[in-house]
């Protein structure tokens, strides 16, 4: 054979700007614990701890670390769920509504001071199933009707918040099931069951993310959905799966809130959503998908919770706390993704 043609070639990094980041970023999502690809988030967290510790000696006390972990439990559960959606490049805004709905639903189904229901642990099952169903509905509308997930879940946010308000009985239901409330009250080594639950969930989620088709294909969808479709994978099913997980864990977040405050509150989910997304992104999970993961999100949650705790500890002006939080979000995300900067990178 006469090979008359010879082909000039580009460098490998240039070969595929479509997957442009992949070319430059060598170390990447891989099994093992060295998965936090950039030191940015951890450095942010440590820097913050150092600053607060130097400002107030109480900050690094055992009691305060316990307080931080207690406060991080619920946001962590929600952020873990959110991670599954974000790595696919989608977004779920319905968190506040779903958590609120879960909270109020649980408090009227479990033994309480207002309604006659007492489903016990069954109530938790019903609520988790509800969260799962709402998440699956989100995913179905998004994947099969091809509507942007941002819009679908925005609408679902309003719907679930409305349903939560409609379910509210005339008085605030107080949860009487002592075993359930005990989840938040009984301490082992100074931490409540909620913290252990969150840690266990994180572990399970990590396994799911790294070791199962659902987790791995989710990453692949975030990296390049078209290719995954080309491979004949039923992408829509995985999308629905991720949203279902997110809905279920958000529902769990609502349940845990109920255990913490001991009453049903139709606004219990307030303030979970944007900090939840911010936590994921601070940890290095990209909104464009394909990168990040459960551990990243946990670090992000710790950054935000530590920040809030530290601002109270150091006595910062309460009026300015939101402003400081906003600045920290911007700086932390910039720091955690600084190594990805390229001229041809597209960030929307």
């Amino acid at each position: 054979m006469t090979q008359a043609q010879l082909h000039a070639h580009d460098t490998s990094a240039m070969a595929s700007p479509r997957r442009g980041e992949a070319g430059t970023q060598r170390r990447s999502g891989h099994i093992g614990l060295g998965v936090l690809k950039s030191a940015g988030p951890i450095v942010s967290l440590l820097a913050m701890i150092l600053v607060f510790a130097s400002l107030t000696p109480n900050f690094v006390s055992v009691a305060n670390l316990q307080a931080i972990l207690e406060s991080a439990a619920v946001p962590a559960v929600v952020a873990i769920g959110m991670t599954f959606v974000l790595v696919q490049g989608s977004i779920d805004l319905s968190g506040e509504g779903v958590a609120s709905l879960a909270n109020i639903l649980l408090s009227i189904l479990i033994a309480n001071s207002v309604t006659a229901n007492d489903l016990g642990a069954g109530a938790i099952g019903v609520v988790l199933a509800t969260g799962l169903a709402i998440g699956a509905l989100n995913g179905t509308l998004y994947a099969y009707l091809r509507m942007p997930s941002l819009i679908v879940t925005l609408a679902m946010w309003l719907i679930t918040l409305g349903l939560a308000a409609l379910l509210f009985p005339s008085r605030q239901p107080q949860i009487l099931d002592s075993g359930f409330v005990g989840l938040a009250l009984h301490k082992h080594l100074g931490l409540s069951a909620l913290v252990y639950l969150a840690v266990a969930l994180a572990f399970v989620a990590f396994i799911v993310e790294r070791r199962t088709k659902l987790g791995r294909i989710g990453f692949a969808i975030g990296a390049d959905e078209a290719l995954v479709r080309l491979a004949g994978v039923n992408v829509n099913a995985y999308k629905v799966g991720a949203f279902a997980i997110c809905g279920c864990l958000t529902g769990l977040g609502g349940i845990l809130t109920a255990a913490q405050i001991g009453v049903g509150n139709p606004l219990a989910g307030e303030g979970l959503l944007f900090p939840g997304i911010a936590a994921c992104v601070i940890g290095g999970t990209l909104l464009s998908g394909g990168r990040g993961g459960v551990l990243h999100s946990l670090v992000g949650v710790l950054v935000l919770v530590t920040l809030r705790n530290g601002l109270v500890q150091t006595g910062a002006n309460p009026l300015l706390q939101k402003a400081i939080e906003g600045m920290v979000i911007v700086v932390a995300v910039a720091a955690s993704t600084w190594h990805l900067r390229r001229k041809t990178r597209v960030v929307k």
Partner: peptide
């Protein structure tokens, strides 16, 4: 074998081999 590369960057070689 596709016209353009059909490998997914953040999956392993093995996962890519058997994805379809």
């Amino acid at each position: 074998v596709h016209q353009e590369q059909s490998l997914i960057g953040n999956l392993t070689v093995a996962e890519n081999l058997f994805i379809d």
